[in-house]
């Protein structure tokens, strides 16, 4: 998970490296640690280190990690020659490595040689049927080819074995959302909340899915999860604040004032609206009129 401090640090390092202030290796390490996708910059700065013999030799055993990082970034940027060269260097150094084998299969993927990549992954899985990374690559490959149903099947099969893999649950949830299969997506987000209850973004995504599903019960649950997002972020999540407003408005329309929750709901509404107005005053005062209009249209103006 990327925290506020880490995000600030990453942006600072990125600016520093882009402006020639050094610290390329620290930047690459942070990108790897935070698992952010900055392929173009990784490729540029990673190659500058690898092409400088003095810098490269100072890395020690981390040199090979950098080769791998640059290879994947090169594939992502369609610089397949660079990816091929990096993979060759790694293969020369680690002759029997399955990890390099996976990298070679990924290179085939990047080229669009799906059948060859599939063969490579199958042979790697024969050696080690429990290699999670390769199972995930097969899912990614099916998704890349547009075979979403195959990707879903494989992911479900994968999750039967590796139930605690939250990255896979998240991927499955995102695929389901893209297919508008919201009930299934909700189940995936429930699993994610169970495994990582302190991550507010999962609460938020779950609330979004429930709000989209609609219906009184779902809306009430969505409101609770938007509230928990606000609680976990210290009131700093604008989307959750809007979610509270929208949920309360929708619940009011559905119940037509029959609900006993009305008083509590309207209090929560006005609180969320106040926080939103305060936030907009601070950060985007020019957009405040639009916000006020939007809140009025939801009969929420504070």
């Amino acid at each position: 998970m990327v925290t506020k401090t880490e995000e600030t640090q990453l942006n600072r390092l990125e600016n520093q490296v882009d402006n020639g202030g050094g610290g390329a290796w620290e930047y690459l390490c942070l990108v790897r640690k935070l698992k952010v996708r900055r392929s173009e910059k990784v490729l540029k700065h990673g190659l500058s280190i690898l092409n400088d013999l003095k810098q490269r030799s100072s890395l020690g055993s981390d040199e090979w990690t950098l080769y791998e990082q640059v290879a994947v970034a090169a594939m992502d940027c369609q610089c397949l020659d660079v990816a091929k060269d990096c993979t060759k260097v790694l293969r020369k150094r680690f002759l029997e490595s399955k990890r390099v084998g996976r990298l070679e299969a990924m290179l085939l993927e990047a080229k669009g040689s799906w059948e060859l990549a599939e063969k490579a992954y199958t042979s790697l899985l024969e050696d080690n049927p429990l290699d999670q990374a390769i199972h995930k690559r097969r899912v990614a490959m099916a998704k890349a080819q547009g075979n979403i149903s195959v990707a879903i099947d494989w992911l479900n099969k994968y999750l039967e074995t590796f139930m605690a893999d939250h990255e896979a649950w998240r991927e499955l949830a995102e695929i389901y959302v893209s297919l508008q299969m919201y009930k299934q997506a909700a189940f995936c987000y429930e699993e994610l909340i169970l495994t990582q209850p302190t991550v507010p973004l999962f609460h938020l995504a779950y609330a979004d899915v429930l709000y989209t599903l609609g219906g009184l019960e779902n809306l009430q649950t969505a409101k609770k999860y938007y509230s928990s997002t606000i609680d976990l972020t210290g009131g700093k999540n604008t989307r959750a604040l809007f979610g509270i407003c929208l949920c309360t408005s929708a619940i009011t329309q559905l119940t037509k004032g029959k609900s006993k929750e009305d008083k509590e709901g309207s209090q929560l509404q006005s609180l969320a609206a106040k926080v939103l107005e305060k936030d907009y005053k601070q950060r985007a005062p020019d957009k405040l009129p639009q916000l006020t209009t939007a809140l009025k249209s939801l009969t929420l103006s504070s």
């Binding site: 995000e7 698992k35 490729l43 540029k44 640059v70 994947v72 369609q78 610089c79 995930k136 990614a140």
Partner: peptide
Amino acid sequence: RIVSLPANLDFMIFNHRGKAFPVEMDLKL
């Protein structure tokens, strides 16, 4: 506080719009 989730790099796919707009840098190892 958590502000964003990491990119799901295990499921990274390569046939995106980067294919249509390759990096315009003369990069060689």
